[in-house]
Design a protein around this nucleic acid. Structure first.
Length: 751
DNA sequence: ACATGTAATTGA
DNA sequence: CAATTACATGTG
């Protein structure tokens, strides 16, 4: 018997693999195995990429593998290829991609034993616990009953908890954190049920009748063989989810081991999707549907990941990070709201989950469904070229539900005619909300700006409250009585007088959701107003609780940021008001209007879903703008066609491919100087002849946390030329000396 | 990434 | 002068 050697990827910026000796008496690892190895003066978990009989590393430098993770089945060659592709395409080291894609618990060798313990730890509740801990946030009597059930039965499944009350899930989480109950007690996966049982859709007569368009879309998806990318273009409320559900049912019924991956853009959207999937696939074994997102506790995330990895999970529902999950029997991928910018990871490995999903479908030769009411122009252009199959749902699925009437409120005109407005709420909008209140219907007010006011300024001397660490104004937050920087989190008390001139008449300028919330309470007397934004949902699970209040009819007017625009199926909302959307019309970011259009279409889609006549009122000072004109006609195709023509003329994506080099330095000059050196280095790269490099420019917010930032955009009509350039460029950049952090982003969204 | 060593900066 | 902090180095 002779030793073998493993080449291991570690979470480390360099792409090199590290060689280790594997003693012949130990278990022989195969590629895809996790190993614990000594690395420098610490131990680290790495991923075996190759097993060889020889190593080029001198024997005196080789060290032994400390331990091999035998309980975890090795990651498949497909998965390793996915990681390798992502590393190559996004210009990162393999280990930098592969290891962060694993749950944290797997990357800590000391937790392996516990994680893979065969017997689920169904621990009885601690004896002598008859009363609830006082500190727990329990008020509703339903939650008292939940606690009683826990005490009486020792175990409770998550689905039982959900049946009681949506808030119960959040409370169970809190109980787990205090240690009053064990997570395993509420986790169905821990029961270790086999997921191989055949699937039957429960009570088919109760399923909604499909529209002709839904049927056609479903037939196309179900009839697909091999790699088949679909762009499901369905207006809001057209029943895209129903198409996903049927397509999955069709597949899972016929193949008892097949797995499906369903991606949603936001954690907030997982509970309602999860509920829909659990209801439809109630006959699947416990643990066959799992979620994967960053909001899960570490242990739960690890167990769900393992359920996917071992094949026990048949349906994996998750946010962008789930696209990197290991799914050995993956047979179909769904990307809902595929246009959503949230699919782009904005730190570390800056991948597009939607793009990786399509790559993965191609690699595995399976169908992928990209759904949206407002597809990204990238996907739309691929469909135009015939590379994606377009499926269209042009009508709402619910009987009698039609798309809402969209009207513009011309603020210039209102002003000219001397009509009154209150705190940015125009007369017609207030009147419309009062009407809804009288009818017992709900209104929704969309304003994409958090806080009370974006600016606090001094009338006398022109002082504006700014962040000491960033080149940005600070936002006034009234409930917290604080000024807060939205870029770095810096906070201070609200000054009583201007720090420059002493004037006491300092005033908030502009309006955020908090101010509108306050104004609505006065403008529409008697209305119950609820605000949902990142500030009001800071605590885990609180967003779900607030949304359930809206669904329960405990709210008359909901005001919020884009959080309220996405996905939710509000039954009683018949009016949507849009405030202050104009700023995005004149942004320097060429994608701003695409994003605005998608957001407005999406938020408009919240009105009139259940058959109530829906109305959308958009307040604007630019009532003649083409974007608003397209919006009033629900004309995505017109908007996409004209915007694509503009993009083509201006040589912008999707007609060119881009990459962004960012530099961060102590001074702006240092950052710019580095980028200029980098630009000069392009001259030595042959492939760069087909690449255009723009001037290095400071970023819009130049300084964040005392760090100055600048960027350099390069682009090419050829993706291959851009990739080849990056491959040669990055090693050259590492040679450049300087005290500077830099990074490259491929296919950037924000420029 | 991360732990370590080394140089640079701060401060009573 | 020590104490703290920024930067450089190497990992098999």
């Amino acid at each position: 018997m002779t030793d073998c050697f493993v080449r291991v990827a570690l979470d480390h910026p360099l792409s090199t693999l590290f060689d280790y000796r594997c003693p012949s008496d130990g278990p022989a690892p195969v590629p895809g195995t996790l190993v614990n190895v000594p690395f420098g003066r610490r131990e680290a978990v790495g991923l075996v990429c190759e097993v060889t009989a020889h190593s080029d590393v001198p024997p005196d430098r080789l060290r032994n593998v400390t331990s091999v993770c035998c309980s975890c089945p090795p990651l498949s060659a497909d998965w390793l290829a996915l990681a390798a592709f992502a590393a190559d395409y996004y210009q990162r080291g393999l280990g930098e991609v592969a290891l962060p894609a694993l749950p944290q618990a797997l990357r800590d060798a000391s937790r392996w034993d516990r994680l893979f313990a065969r017997e689920p730890r169904y621990r009885a509740l601690p004896a002598g616990r008859e009363a609830l801990p006082d500190s727990l946030p329990v008020r509703a009597s339903a939650l008292r009953r939940l606690a009683a059930a826990l005490l009486a039965e020792d175990a409770l499944f998550a689905s039982d908890a959900r049946a009681l009350h949506p808030k119960a899930v959040a409370v169970l989480d809190a109980w787990c954190e205090t240690g009053w109950v064990e997570r395993e007690v509420v986790d169905p996966f821990a029961a270790g049920h086999s997921a191989a049982a055949p699937v039957a859709v429960t009570n088919p007569t109760a399923l909604p009748v499909l529209t002709d368009e839904q049927t056609a879309a479903l037939d196309a998806i179900s009839g697909a063989h091999g790699f088949a990318p679909f762009l499901l273009h369905g207006v809001t409320g057209s029943g895209k989810t129903e198409v996903y559900l049927r397509a999955l049912a069709h597949l899972l019924e016929r193949r008892p081991d097949a797995q499906a991956l369903v991606l949603v853009p936001e954690i907030n959207l997982t509970p309602q999707f999860e509920a829909a999937f659990r209801a439809r696939f109630a006959s699947l074994a416990e643990g066959a549907i799992v979620t994967l997102h960053s909001g899960l506790a570490e242990g739960e995330r690890a167990r769900n990941w393992l359920a996917a990895h071992t094949g026990h999970a048949r349906i994996v529902l998750g946010t962008r990070l789930a696209v990197l999950a290991s799914l050995p029997k993956l047979a179909v991928i769904v990307v809902d709201e595929e246009h959503d910018p949230a699919y782009k990871q904005q730190e570390g490995l800056r991948y597009s989950a939607r793009d990786l999903a399509v790559w993965r479908a191609k690699q595995l030769d399976v169908p992928v469904v990209l759904g949206s009411a407002t597809p990204s122009l990238e996907s739309w252009w691929l469909a135009e070229q015939g590379r994606y199959t377009r499926l269209t749902l042009s009508r709402r699925a619910v009987a009698d539900a039609v798309l809402p009437v969209v009207k513009l409120i011309d603020l210039e005109d209102e002003h000219r005619r001397g009509r009154a407005s209150f705190e940015g709420l125009s007369g017609p909008l207030v009147a419309a909300m009062k009407t809804r209140l009288e009818r017992g219907e709900q209104s929704l007010v969309f304003l994409n700006r958090r806080g009370y006011a974006p600016i606090l300024s001094c009338d006398a001397c022109g002082w504006v409250a700014g962040c000491p660490r960033c080149s940005a104004y600070v936002v006034l937050h009234k409930p917290e009585r604080a000024l807060r920087c939205h870029h770095c989190g810096w906070e201070s008390r609200i000054p009583r007088a201007c720090p420059d001139c002493g004037n006491v008449d300092i005033a908030p300028m502009g309006r955020g959701t908090q101010r509108i919330e306050e104004a609505l309470a006065q403008a529409v007397p008697g209305a119950r107003v609820l605000r949902i934004d990142a500030d009001s949902t800071r605590r885990k699970g609180s967003a779900e609780a607030l949304f359930s209040d809206v669904h329960a009819g405990e709210v008359d007017i909901l005001v919020g940021t884009q959080m309220i625009a996405k996905g939710h199926d509000f039954q009683r909302v018949s009016l949507v008001g849009v405030l202050n959307a104009d700023t995005a019309l004149f942004s320097h970011d060429f994608r701003a209007s695409e994003r605005l259009f998608a957001q407005l279409m999406q938020v408009s889609g919240r009105a009139g879903r259940a058959g109530l006549p829906g109305e959308v009122l958009v307040q604007t000072r630019y009532a003649r703008h083409a974007l608003y004109h397209a919006l009033t006609r629900h004309d995505y195709v017109g908007f996409a066609t004209s915007t694509l023509a503009e993009r083509r003329d201006a040589h912008l994506p999707p007609f060119v491919y881009q990459a962004l080099l960012r530099a961060e330095g102590r001074t702006l000059d240092a950052a710019l100087a580095f980028l200029q050196q980098a630009a000069a280095a392009l001259h030595d790269i042959p492939a760069a002849e087909r690449v255009t490099a723009y001037d290095a420019v400071p970023m819009t917010i130049v300084k964040v946390m005392h760090v100055h930032r600048a960027q350099l955009l390069i682009e090419s009509g050829s993706r291959a030329a851009l990739q080849a350039t990056l491959r040669a460029w990055l090693p050259a950049l590492r040679q450049l000396k300087g005290v500077l952090r830099w990074s490259v982003e491929v296919d950037p969204l924000d420029i």
